[in-house]
Design a protein around this nucleic acid. Structure first.
Lengths: 337, 337
DNA sequence: CTGAAAGCGCTTACAG
DNA sequence: CTGAAAGCGCTTACAG
């Protein structure tokens, strides 16, 4: 059988409370005592029992991560967030319980009210997301990675997609480009109400209007044919488009580059291209693309931080937007006369 | 505060042991008593405390799922397995704790010896996998999805990749094809020691020899250029290849189809193509491909089943191979004279 | 700086 | 069919 705190106390010749305090560091321990306890722990390979710790300490050191992984979702990006959340949690000595699909709300309810988890990280947030409602009503420590329509009372973290869109538009406008395109996600993604594609697109259109640019929008299917069609449409019959922002999955972006190449359009000589809010590595593309990166580790570690802060204290509801950055890889150039 | 079993007992007018037994079903309860308990639970929105249940019952109803998600890994497929494992676990009222990367062995040790989990599901098993060693020495209920080199004392479940390879070869050989190719994974995947690509390739070569076929192997990089090169090589200078089996990621398969199309080769008239051990949907490809599917839900639910069987009783070590099936979508044809 | 003890909320023999 | 009670292995006031 596994060693208990009683075994450690006996071997070390101290009381179990001393062992417990030595472990938690919640009160000062004499140097010799500490050493005896440490060697006893080593000798017995003692690991505190998680259930007992949870029961007595009212903390499980587990966070629930809810990621619905809907059929239509683009797994690599979502997986990157799950992974980032798990990694961030471990940095705080928390483990991660994975809640998927149907378990979205039922599971959240179950694991919080049974005190299986101390807090919740909500990923892939929709504009109208029942998990947001639930988190609000449950009043459990939680952070959303993403911004629902109603953020009242919630703690949300996300890349500032609006700023990212403006950054991309400004880059092109500053380069003298007059006709710019946005190659976005498949139509189903927008239809689903996923919030960041919408936020990005709206800000893109708004900024382009401010900068007095002509805008063309595309929402291609993932197939080669779909991408080809959308790109052709964005380029326009006269091929007068000179600036392209891509806010979509890597396969679509790669295909779009293929299509530009086929059409004899060079990047950046003929078309300036920017990859926006991308979780993947655009430096291996042909050609490497300028990118406004979306870094899962950033938002997830902040979300974990804020959730744990709620567990140990109080945090005011807030929406934290992470400012975007621009990585230049030479895929944009001033418009040629 | 959340209601406890004491509250339920008081409201229902029974003892807490009766409530507990009513919940677990471990002893018969009078009809009226049961109803009073049920309505008390509903009224109080009672949820048993997970920590207390774990401590007293010596069961947490949590399984650890270890999936290293190495940098090189192909996320969608691996994510499909994580998802399948989580879904299968929920079907048995188990939750899933996700262990990633560095946590591979350290985390496994931690969560098992602290009794945080009742068992372990090991995904993405390498031929030489330290997690297999650990599971063996820990003697914890566990199942591996995949087959390590040394299966001694372990419970392993997987698609029968050797049989799948033979099935594919036989299909082509029976169709009169004499020169067949295997478009496999990127070189790094084989180098890593991931076991199923190796198992598949070896069985493919062996069966082709038995059937007296000429074999050409390709291990393309993921880029368009990489795929183009590998396909060209497999086709041969005389383009005498007429049968192609693809055992690789969907992007590579899609690109290979593009390359065949570019080369003016029709499927199946000029080349018969089979997608082998694929977790994705090949019916949306152009053209739709015959496939020997790899169904994560199958192996994962069996793995969960076998792990839970170990938790509640005893299971003999074993290697369970799931027989492959062939789905005909018209991408193969007899060789034309 | 350390210890004895109550208590966290369950499960499960033991008893009837 | 049901109840009283021990006990799971910790944490944390309370006391010194």
């Amino acid at each position: 059988m596994a060693a208990t705190i009683n075994d450690v106390a006996r071997v070390a010749g101290v009381s179990i409370s001393t062992v417990s305090y030595a472990l938690s560091g919640k009160r000062p321990i004499g140097e010799k005592t500490r050493q005896r306890i440490e060697s006893a722990i080593l000798e017995l390979q003692y690991q505190p029992n998680a259930g007992a710790r949870a029961l007595a300490g009212r903390r499980t050191y587990i966070l629930a991560v809810t990621e619905p992984l809907r059929p239509d979702t683009y797994t690599p990006a979502h997986m990157a967030f799950v992974l980032a959340a798990a990694t961030a949690a471990r940095a705080y000595d928390y483990d991660v319980l994975l809640l998927t699909q149907d378990e979205a709300t039922g599971g959240l309810h179950r694991v919080t009210s049974s005190r299986l988890v101390d807090g919740v990280i909500v990923l892939d947030v929709l504009a109208e997301d029942e998990r947001a409602e639930l988190v609000r009503s449950l009043d459990v420590p939680a952070a959303l990675v993403g911004i629902p329509a109603d953020t009242d009372g919630l703690v949300c973290v996300d890349l500032d997609f609006e700023a990212a869109a403006r950054l991309a538009v400004d880059r092109l406008a500053d380069g003298g480009h007059r006709v710019v395109g946005l190659l976005g996600h498949p139509p189903s993604v927008y239809a689903r109400g996923s919030n960041f594609p919408l936020r990005f697109r709206e800000a893109f259109v708004a900024r382009a209007a401010e900068r007095d640019l002509e805008v063309r929008l595309g929402a291609p299917e993932r197939t080669i044919a779909g991408v080809r069609e959308a790109v052709a449409e964005i380029l326009g019959p006269d091929r007068d488009l000179t600036g392209l922002v891509m806010h979509c999955e890597d396969t679509i972006q790669m295909r779009a580059l293929d299509v530009l190449c086929e059409a004899g359009l060079r990047v950046p000589q003929d078309v300036s291209v920017i990859s926006a809010a991308s979780t993947f590595d655009t430096s291996t593309f042909t050609p490497p693309l300028d990118v406004i990166p979306l870094i899962p580790a950033e938002s997830c570690s902040r979300a974990v931080e804020l959730t744990i802060a709620q567990i140990t204290g109080t945090v005011d509801p807030r929406v934290e937007l992470i400012p975007p950055t621009y990585v230049d890889r030479g895929s944009t150039a001033p418009r040629r006369p």
